[in-house]
Structures are given as C-alpha cells and as structure tokens.
Design a protein around this nucleic acid. Structure first.
Lengths: 334, 334
DNA sequence: CTGAAAGCGCTAACAA
DNA sequence: TTGTTAGCGCTTTCAG
C-alpha cells in the first residue's frame, strides 16, 4: 500500500512523529512555523490519516451508527438526512445499519456495537420485540443511545418522538367528523411503542364520540405488500366493510390505495383514508391523501443533536423530546 | 471502559493471545477443544472484538462506503437497500456518505477515503463536475471503486448503469406517438453522464420522427423545489407551452405535477408527462404517472456484487453492467 | 516548543 | 497445535 504515514512525514521534515501528530491536530504547543511546514508537507505528500489507528489509540471512532428497519421509506430516509446533516457538521461519520424489521438482526448489530465501532447510537427499533440487554450494556460502557420515533418504553434512554397518541386521536376524530361509523386501524406490530400510542389515541377518539371500540378493527399487517393488499381486499369486499381507515404506517396507506383501486372502490365516497405518512406525493395522489405528517427531518436532527450533546457532556440525560406531527386534510377524507 | 480484550480471554484461559485470536477466527491450526473453550469463555465474558484494532492490523476495514447525493430519493434509497443486502451477506458494513450534490463535498469524502476507512467504494456522483483525481488515487492504492447510475465517463472503473439513452428514446418516442409536438426535457445537470445519455436518446427520437430539436426545450433545473416549480409555471403559462414533458429526475416529475396543479393545467390533456422515477406511488398519482422505472434495487445489488468481486479477486476489471429500465405507460401520457 | 517511549487491541510470522 | 515477538499508525504522557 505504500501509504504516507505520520512517520514518513516526520522523517521528511526532520521532526518527530509526536510533533507532526500534534501539528496536524493544531495543538497549541506547536509553533506556527512548524505547523505550517507540517501542513505543507502533508499536502505535498498527499497525506491522509489512518482513521483506524486514530480510533484505536483514542478509543473514539468519530462515527455514529444509525440502526433502523429500512431506508426505502420516506420517514426514515428523511430522518437520515437530518441525522447526517448534524453528523457531517460535527465531523462524524454515519454508519447505516438496517435491521429489515428483524429483532435478531437488530440484536446482532447492537451487540457488535459493543466492540466500539461507533461512539454513539441512534436507533428506531424494529417491529419485533426489542431485547434491551445490548442497549443496557452499551449504556454501561458509556456509549450513548438515543431512540427516535420507534422508542423502547422500558428503557431509560434519551428519546425523540412525535405526539403519536394525539395525532392518532386527531386522525380518528377527523374521520368521525367526516361521517365515518367504523374505522379500521392498520398497524404492523402491536408491541411497537408507537403502535401502542397510536392505538390509544384512536381508542380515545372513538370513546369520546360514543363509538364502541371493536378489537377486530385493529388490523395487524405484515411486511409483505402483497399479503397486505390481499387482506385489505378481503376486508374491503365485505358488505359491512369499514368506512374509514387509518394507516399507521406509510406503506400501508399506499397499499390501501392499491387495494381500493383493484376493487374499484372510491375514496373517499366508499371509504375514507388517512395515513401516517411523509410521502412527498401525498398531495398528488388520486385522490390526494390526508396525512399525519411527521417531522422526519427534524426528528433526525433532534436525535442527532441529543446524541452529540451526550457525546460531549459524557452525561447521558434521558431526556425526551416530542416534536408534533401535523394533520394535513386532503381529499381522501373529503 | 474496562473492555474485555483478547489478552484477558487468554489470561483466563491460560492461553496465548495468538491462540485465542486464531481460535476466534476459526483457524484450522487450532484444536476443536481449544476453540470450544475459547468460544465459551468469549461468550461468558461477553467479548466483542475491537474492529479498529483488527482493521489497523489487517489493513482491511470490512466496510464499504456508499457515496451519493442524497438518500431521500426512491432511486437511491432502493439502491442502498440492494447494496446493503449484499454487504450484510458478506459481513461488511456500509458507510453512507452524502454529497448533497456538492462536488467539493464529494471530493472531500473521496479524499478522506484514501486513509483507508473503506475497503471499497460505491459511488453515484453528484451533479456538479467530478474531479477524477481522488478516484484515480484510490484505484492506485488498490481501493476498488464502482460507479452506479451516475457514472463518470472519463474514468476507467467498473460501472453499473441502466440503458439511459434508449430509455429516453423510448420516452420521447412514446410522447410523440401520443401526439406531442413539442417536448420539454427537464434535467438537473448537463455534465452528468446520465443526463447526457438521456438527452441523446431524446434527440434521437425527435430526429427519427422529423421533429427539429430546440435547444430551449432542454430545461436545466436546480435542487430547489420551489425555484423549479416557479420556472415550470412560467414555462407552462406560455401560450405555446410544450405539450409533453420528460422529467429526467424523479423529483422533477413531482414538481411538474405540482406546477400543473397550481396552474390548473390538465395532465394529460394540456400536457403529457413522463418521468424517470421509482416512486411506489406512481400508479396512484392523479393522474397515474407514466414512468421509466429504473431497476434501483438490482443496480445496487449489481454494483455491490461487482465491488465484492473486485475485493476478492484483487483484480479490478473495469466491466460495465447495463440493467434495462422499463417504460410503464400510465394515464399521464394517455 | 519538541522528542522519546509506550501502547491502544489485534494478527501475522516465525519458532517451538 | 500453541506461543513468542513484533508491529499496524496513531496519540499521549512525560522529559528535555
């Protein structure tokens, strides 16, 4: 590889490696003139530091890991943009680790993080049950962990969430006001904190409006689009199908549209639809989709900001930040 | 940090560090019984290797870097999913580096990669001009670089692209057959290889159908949605506005819809639209959007596969893989 | 202000 | 089959 190392720079400059290292780090104990010489030589020889040597020595990787279910989802990709904006600003790298909604994968990733690959972790947990042990170990080791969106309630970490419960309340309330009598609630996993919160908000709205909650209106969906569409078609083909649907996950909203299209059902006449979604195309859909829009980018930024605060303070305060979502009424509930 | 190291394992087991290291690597020169003991002790003490020590020593990071403009774009996020699927399978990590379409940022990232942070690089270059020097240096250092989608023509690297030229040809041809007389072509950067290819295909179709190419029909757009929408509204407000639009970038297709909505223009009656896009919602838009759908996931997979081939072979053949896109005719050109 | 020495945790030669 | 030794490239005392 014949790489240019600090030693080589030092030899060329007739200096010690230590001095060169300090000069490159802009240490105050090095004279301006030496710094200048070092920097020039570094540029001339096209020196690039070996990050791993530095990490090993300093026990810091200048890297944060983002652990999340997938990236092909508007919420997550926007959140990554927010995270990355902060990280880049702080001179940190972002390792993206996808769990594909598999608890085992998530555990493996987190366990691996114990090795010190990342200085801090941002996580939006997968829909299967989260095993808190690795998280706890990470915290014990002083690796700050910040949950965002899909948090783990049992854990005492910093968290960034949106107002899931009241958003779901608003969604359900809006549907009821629009005339819906039976509202189905689509979810991917009931043991996910946000699902739970959202279901509570939904229930609350029903209660308040004197509609009795039917357990069968909570529709557990899968991660397979086709299966969901089949299921939705079955439900929507019934004589007494729901006249309102809340899709608590972006993808599910799309699938409802697909199912309706295939069945020839009219939105909002036959069924009104509202989705938790960050789709840029929401307003362009046929019909335009009423959404609960989450502040994805801001949540990413906020989570990263909390993480870096923990990283500098060394004190990991388990604060909780709530950034409100917004109900955007469009034609699908009109 | 009191981390469990190989030395500690060795001490507990009354073995040498080397033996433990080899046992953990499942080396053939270690007896089964010793391996078993080591593994058990490692599990008992919850040992996790320090990846940076290993990287430093082996001069391999087990990490690949993906350098791309942004992640909040269906093409890129799907491509990442494809890349990650392969990387995870090979036991590699994925560092996502965003350029935000800034050439300087891209250069900085690539330069930094010279330090050995990643064993290989996947890149879809930004829309500003790419400086090939860092890429060349990386190649000289034996770091394989694979371009995908937005390739750099001057560089002799492995590349994964789609059939941009013939796709654009098909798009333009389809519009002409649908009755369009003047077709605007929206692009974000003309010095981007794919823009160039696509424009060529577009020109070719015009020529073949006896429509004279007007340079003013190539509309250079920006990365600011609002600016683009203003521009589009200006163009579409003209008496003699184009009756067909090819959006060569996913976001631009969405912006055309927005501009038309705001102006009250009807798609496809007033203007027909076709977009290079991987939007899952394309078929649900109002009206459904005719697309050139790129094989994003497959391109990601293919690029990663090429990279790993280079990583194992040590021979970086500058092969070029072309995966065709698909014209999906929908109502926006009906 | 500069340098010498030590070592982060791991692994590759080489020896035993 | 196991152990000894050395060192990846960097940073951090501590001494000069």
């Amino acid at each position: 590889m014949g790489n240019v190392t600090i030693r080589i720079l030092a030899r060329e400059l007739q200096l010690s490696a230590a001095t060169v290292s300090k000069a490159l780090a802009d240490s105050h104990e090095i004279s301006q003139s030496t710094k200048k010489r070092v920097l020039e030589m570094a540029a001339a020889l096209n020196y690039t530091p070996n990050p791993y040597a530095s990490s090993l020595r300093r026990k810091k990787s200048q890297t944060i890991a983002v652990v999340l279910p997938e990236v092909a989802d508007s919420f997550f990709s926007q959140a990554i943009d927010g995270i990355e904006a902060i990280a880049q600003d702080k001179g940190y790298h972002v390792l993206v680790c996808l769990t594909h909604e598999r608890a085992l994968k998530e555990q493996a990733i987190l366990h691996e993080m114990l090795g010190g690959r990342a200085d801090g972790i941002l996580i939006s947990s997968c829909s299967e049950t989260t095993d808190p042990s690795s998280i706890l170990e990470l915290q014990e080791k002083g690796v700050p962990v910040v949950f965002f969106d899909r948090v783990c309630e049992e854990l005492d970490t910093a968290k960034v969430v949106t107002d899931d419960r009241s958003s779901a309340y608003k969604a359900a309330d809006h549907l009821i006001r629009s005339g819906c009598k039976e509202i189905a609630f689509l979810t991917i996993s009931e043991n996910l904190s946000i699902s739970h919160e959202r279901i509570e908000g939904y229930k609350h709205a029903l209660e308040e409006r004197g509609i009795k909650f039917k357990k069968t209106d909570i529709i557990p969906c899968t991660h397979h689009a086709e299966d969901n569409i089949q299921l939705l078609k079955k439900i929507l083909s019934r004589e007494d199908h729901p006249d309102g649907i809340i899709a608590s996950v972006e993808k599910l909203a799309v699938q409802v549209y697909q199912a309706c299209h295939e069945l020839g059902l009219k939105i909002p006449e036959d069924v009104k639809v509202i989705g938790f979604s960050n789709l840029v195309t929401a307003s362009l859909l046929n019909p335009s989709l009423t959404t609960i829009t989450q502040p994805a980018f801001e949540m990413g930024r906020a989570a990263a900001t909390l993480l870096f605060k923990a990283l500098s303070n060394k004190s990991v305060e388990p604060s909780q930040v709530v950034i409100p979502s917004e109900l955007q009424v469009r034609d699908s509930t009109g």
